[in-house]
Design a protein around this nucleic acid. Structure first.
Lengths: 238, 238
DNA sequence: GAGTGGTCTAGACCACCCC
DNA sequence: GGGTGGTCTAGACCACTCG
């Protein structure tokens, strides 16, 4: 559909298939213009996407090259947060992923949550507490708040699958961006039980405020992951 | 110098100064074209920069708005890794930041490090182990490997200041991007001593492979931070 | 000097939002 | 319908790398 996306996708696939190998030089921008029948700015935008994804590097005066790095390991539990959203869907779709809902209520949000969601303490939000299992092993406890005005119609069966799928496919809303803060902590007493760990066990906490396409905030959440089950990958490009 | 950067900088400053407040609508792109005397694509590129920095949001058909979020807290120990490099310099420049060098040698790299740096085990690298203190309190132990061919001339006094300053200003090299993996772990016995903590204390580990402008890898490092002293912020934009 | 990617222009059409 | 940002064009000049 969109030209620069399909060009980026084409090149990315060729890299993943090994047609272009690490350190290989990609075709020049001028060459790609002819190949794909587009203008140079469009090719440039496609390559900039791949730069943001950490897959290629550009050197003025030299060319564009496949990046010099072992590609994101296919760890089931790692999720990547470069500038695309791979990973926003929490590597759903893997075998044997299920959720156990511990709490599901509609409440007035605590002050801090109201601040983060930019709503008042009198508004209503879903409060969801769920444990996510992979291959039968508990990985993460998620504490999620979502304004009912923004995301109406959540039922228990949706939580057991993917909220994100419901938002994008069920409601036709587009997820746009997220601000995340990552910390290392220790589990609470309850989390020791939920995650089947001892007190002296590292927890990777990901606090997230997530935005829709139209600028509304639809989620404030804290995900507290077993330290041995999640690593978070990022690419930063200047 | 570069037009889109200076436009972005101008708008960013106005947001930080409160001239544009959260949820305010920014001038239309067409309007900014006149204000700054540039074409629309240039304005667009400037605004896209601010979108990547998580400062504004664009809505097709409506306009561009200041984002709806408490701005990155000025925690001394938090560093941000959106798509600019704020934070690459480890929030240096704060008062009372100093380093204690525990190891500084030139060695052949272990196999894993050689793989990450894309060199052979016969090449030479600096190996640096240092503790960084802020306000007299140990925050982080850094284990750093740098190829001597890429970053020549490191001396002990450079390590006590900022390696990054030496690379960019001393050597005239440009830092371009970094791949990071973040994990939560527990300290080693030695780190308990270095960081003045007990064994049961969360550690935020940041593993990093860093690239220069010209595509060369100049650093492989693991930074292991006291969990109570660092949080890592990211913005991901689709 | 030849060739690369970086920036920028002036203009066009489209998808989307709101009135 | 009028106006927004999204995509795209064809062409220009510049900064940089490399032989």
């Amino acid at each position: 559909m969109i030209k620069y996306e399909s060009i980026a996708k084409d090149i990315q696939e060729k890299i993943e298939q090994g047609i272009y190998k690490p350190n290989d030089q990609l075709p020049f921008e001028a060459e790609m213009c002819e190949t794909y029948g587009v203008s140079r700015i469009t090719v440039k935008k496609a390559m900039d996407l791949l730069v943001m994804r950490g897959m290629v590097i550009k050197r003025r005066g030299s060319g564009t090259f496949v990046k010099n790095i072992t590609l994101p390991a296919n760890d089931e539990y790692s999720f990547s947060t470069s500038n695309q959203f791979s990973g926003f869907f929490h590597t759903e779709g893997h075998k044997d992923v299920r959720s156990e809902i511990k709490e599901f209520q509609i409440i007035n949000p605590p002050e801090i949550v109201a601040q983060r969601l930019k709503i008042t303490e009198e508004d209503f939000v879903y409060y969801i507490e769920r444990i996510r299992y992979s291959e039968g092993v508990p990985n993460v406890v998620e504490y999620t708040y979502m304004p009912i005005d923004v995301i109406p119609g959540i039922k228990k069966d949706i939580l057991e699958k993917s909220i994100y799928e419901y938002i994008s496919e069920g409601l036709g809303l587009k997820i746009k961006s997220a601000h995340r803060t990552v910390r290392a902590t220790l589990p609470t007493v309850q989390e020791e039980e939920y995650l089947e760990i001892e007190h002296c066990f590292p927890i990777l906490e990901v606090e997230q405020v997530a935005f829709l396409d139209d600028g509304r905030i639809f989620e404030y959440s804290k995900s507290r992951h077993r330290g041995d089950k999640l690593e978070l990958k990022t690419v930063s490009v200047q």
